[in-house]
Amino acid sequence: MRLDKYLSQATGISRKDIRRLMRRDEVSLNGEPVRDPSLHIDPDEDEICLYDQPVGAPGPRYLMLYKPEGYVSASDDPTHPTVNSLVDLPRAEELHCCGRLDIDATGLVLLTDDGQWSHRITSPRHKLSKRYRVETADPIDDDAIRAFDQGLKLNGELRRTLPARLQILSPREALVELTEGRYHQVKRMFAALGNRVVTLHRERIGSIDLDPELEPGDYRPLTESEIDSIYS
């Protein structure tokens, strides 16, 4: 691969600016400054540095992000701030959400540019579980546990929801675990029982938990074990 193309893909810097940096001796190859952008390199064998820092090979990226309220789960939106705008990385606009959260919901969002990995999360066929912490306007009746388990008829839909697990934590607080991703599903399930969701917070996708060290708006790369867990 050409050196300028490699650096551009790995950093998000334009090839024109990469060439400009080369002329300033900001790029080195195997310890030596290099100014030839057309030089072909082997990412597995050569050490490429920018500003004296090694540049990793371009590849898929996997992030977890703590979505704050008021942000939309999209890379672009004409009226609201997006979760991508919280990511200060090159080519952040190329990342996409693996499943959406409502604008007023908070919690775990997974971002990637790996389409196959994302499909494992979002495809109904794989039935990957998601867990939400919910606060409701009215007390949650114990009968709701059985209703969630048996499936609910949502307004405007013919097919009942798949069985979902409801764990009541307090009169107005519960954990909901489901494997579907219908539009506003958790809110509509409680609405079907005559209740209203006040706050909705996603804690887990599959076996990936929202990192307790993250504050709203923060993000971090996923670990290798977290990435691999989607395929297990």
Score class of each variant (00 low, 15 high):
Gln116Gly: 10
Asp104Leu: 10
Ala191Ser: 02
Leu166Tyr: 01
Gly59His: 06
Glu213Lys: 10
Gly59Met: 05
Cys98Glu: 06
Arg61Trp: 01
Arg2His: 08
Val27Ser: 04
Glu26Pro: 00
Leu175Lys: 01
Glu215Pro: 04
Ala10Met: 04
Ile208Ser: 06
Asp218Lys: 07
Ala57Thr: 15
Thr161Ala: 11
Arg204Asp: 11
Trp117Asn: 08
Cys97Met: 10
Pro37Cys: 03
Arg125Met: 06
Leu86Asp: 01
Ala144Phe: 00
Pro90Ser: 05
Asp149Lys: 14
Gly194Ala: 05
Leu86Gly: 03
Pro124Leu: 03
Leu222His: 11
Pro139Arg: 07
Glu94Asn: 15
Pro171Thr: 05
Val72Met: 12
Gln9Glu: 15
Cys97His: 10
Pro58Cys: 13
Pro171Gln: 07
Asn195Gly: 13
Ala137Arg: 14
Arg91Thr: 09
Ile13Thr: 10
Asp104Met: 10
Asn30Gln: 06
Pro37Ile: 02
Arg19Asn: 05
Pro54Asn: 13
Glu173Leu: 01
Gly12Thr: 11
Leu169Cys: 03
Glu94Met: 13
His201Gly: 08
Glu45Lys: 11
Met189Leu: 03
Arg146His: 15
His80Asp: 14
Ala105Ser: 15
Arg133Val: 12
Ile140Cys: 10
Asp218Trp: 05
Leu89Ser: 07
Leu95Lys: 14
Cys49Tyr: 12
Glu93Pro: 03
Thr11Glu: 13
Arg2Tyr: 08
Leu222Cys: 12
Arg23Ile: 06
Arg220Met: 06
Ala192Trp: 09
Asp141His: 09
Ser85Ile: 09
Cys98Leu: 05
Arg125Lys: 15
Gly31Thr: 01
Ser28Ile: 01
Gly99Ile: 06
Val186Cys: 04
Ile205Ser: 09
His40Cys: 10
Gln53Lys: 12
Arg2Gly: 07
Leu158Cys: 01
Arg172Val: 15
Leu3Ile: 13
Val109Arg: 11
Gly217Arg: 03
Gly70Pro: 06
Ser123Gly: 00
Ala191Leu: 00
Leu178Thr: 00
Glu173Met: 09
Pro221Val: 02
Leu7Val: 03
Ala105Arg: 06
Pro139Tyr: 01
Leu222Trp: 08
Glu180Ile: 02
Ile121Tyr: 02
Glu215Phe: 09
Met189Asp: 00
Ser8Arg: 12
Arg35Pro: 00
Glu224Lys: 15
Asp142Trp: 01
Pro60Arg: 10
Gly12Asn: 11
Arg196Asn: 09
Ser129Lys: 05
Arg20Trp: 02
Val134Tyr: 00
Ser118Val: 04
Arg23Leu: 12
His184Arg: 09
Arg146Asn: 15
Ala74His: 03
Met22Arg: 02
Ile140Asn: 03
Tyr219His: 15
Gln167Phe: 00
Thr82Phe: 11
Ser225Lys: 12
Leu111Met: 10
Arg15Met: 12
Pro58Ile: 11
Gly206His: 09
Arg131Met: 13
Asp143Lys: 06
Pro43Tyr: 03
Asp143Ile: 04
Tyr62Asp: 11
Asp113Val: 05
Ala74Lys: 04
Tyr231Asp: 13
Arg188Leu: 00
Tyr62Met: 09
Leu193Pro: 00
Asp211Trp: 04
Glu157Leu: 14
Pro60Trp: 14
Gly70Ser: 08
Ile205Pro: 04
Phe190Thr: 00
Met64Ile: 07
Arg23His: 12
His96Ile: 13
